[in-house]
Design a protein around this nucleic acid. Sequence first.
DNA 1: TTACAAACCT
Length: 463
Amino acid sequence: MILSNSTKTHHLWRLTFSQQYRTLPFNKHEAEPRHRKKGHKTSSRNRYDAPFVNHVKEARDPGEALTLFHEYLQRGFKPDYPSYAALLYKLARCQDFGAVEEVLRNVEDNNVHCQETIFIALFHHYGKAQLVQKAVDLFNRMTRFNCVRTKQSLNGLLNVLVDNGWFLEANELFDRGYEMGFRLNSVAFNVMIKGWLEKGEWEQANKVFEEMLERRVEPSVVTYNSFIGYLCRNGELDKAKDLLEDMIKKGKRPNAITFALLMEGSCLIGEHDEAKKMMFDMEYRGCKPTVVNFGVLMSDLGKRGKIEEAKSVLHEMKKRHMKPDVVAYNILINYLCKESRAADAYEVLFEMQVGGCEANAATYRMLVDGFCGAGDFEGGLKVLNAMLTSGHFPRVETFRFMVVGLLKSGNLDGACFVLEEMEKRQMTFCPEDWEALVMESCRGDENGSVGEHVNELVLTMEA
DNA sequence: TTACAAACCT
């Protein structure tokens, strides 16, 4: 425990802290008057039927979710599939895979009938954490959960294998799919094609494409987009445009993503106006531009230091009654932070929440890092608090940077808050980090007061 | 938070 003798005051402090900095209460739900909420048909029903699910969703960290689960079990609660699924989603999203395993064993023991979707989500999270073997094992174990395994989960696992470079295993699984009697669809082929193209293996990707045709699996717009994207990334815009005409001839309608890829390709070779023109061109061809297309333009402007113009593209979207999404706002926030304009970036966060768009992990990471990079650790702390409240957390480096910065500016309470949040997520500094932390904090610390605090922290963290 | 292409953060 950190500073156990002052835990009580610490919690008090956090309460006032949260109230002080909950500056963004503009969620649709919170803004809605109470009497109208009552009449809302789904929310009140769900709340009544599934208290555990709602509790779990509100849990701030995996530890809290798990404690809740055990409390419910002790009270004789028999979890059903939605309860297990909510818990597993929470734990997996926080990357607490030890807890995931524990809950899975519990699911197995209780013979709960499971849906395939939860396993697909777990594969995804295992894959993101590079725990590929865990995903494979779970795929093999799936049938023990009274779960029907279809090509959906095969595709999900295949994607994990390919994204992590396990091509041999991916090929094996591909063949196994046929042995299992699945009629593989275009998604499986698209996953393989994507993998080869990411490795720069155009020939291999084409082989898969040939096999696709041989097996009479119809290529989809995604298939073409993969190839078009590859050509665009490699500066071969002309060939990409040829492929566009090719797909149209074959009766495959390009979509907004097809054109977004071509727009990016244009920007890459310096033809910025061409990208803009392509927006009109696509509309002429009966394909309405979407937020993705506007996003490409914004990114291009941001890269070239034209932030104000990027901002006006965002407003152009609003004028056209398009709702900019989180990525559109993120593009702006990213470039503002890079120009050390964290305060302006914070304004954009405010604007997006007013516009009913929820910030994601990337939004918060950029902002916290933006404030800290500008030396404004109080500002960073303010965003960190909103970040944690919404269930996201920053990188370890950011945490470390914040602790040092807060200590330096004499904000011991803030530093403790950050350390405690880390502890809750089982994030800890490695010895080298501690050393760096101590060294950093002692620099320019004339009367040794900061060093004293750090020593205290080291001792309490190690305990 | 039912797989694949895609603009943002690692």
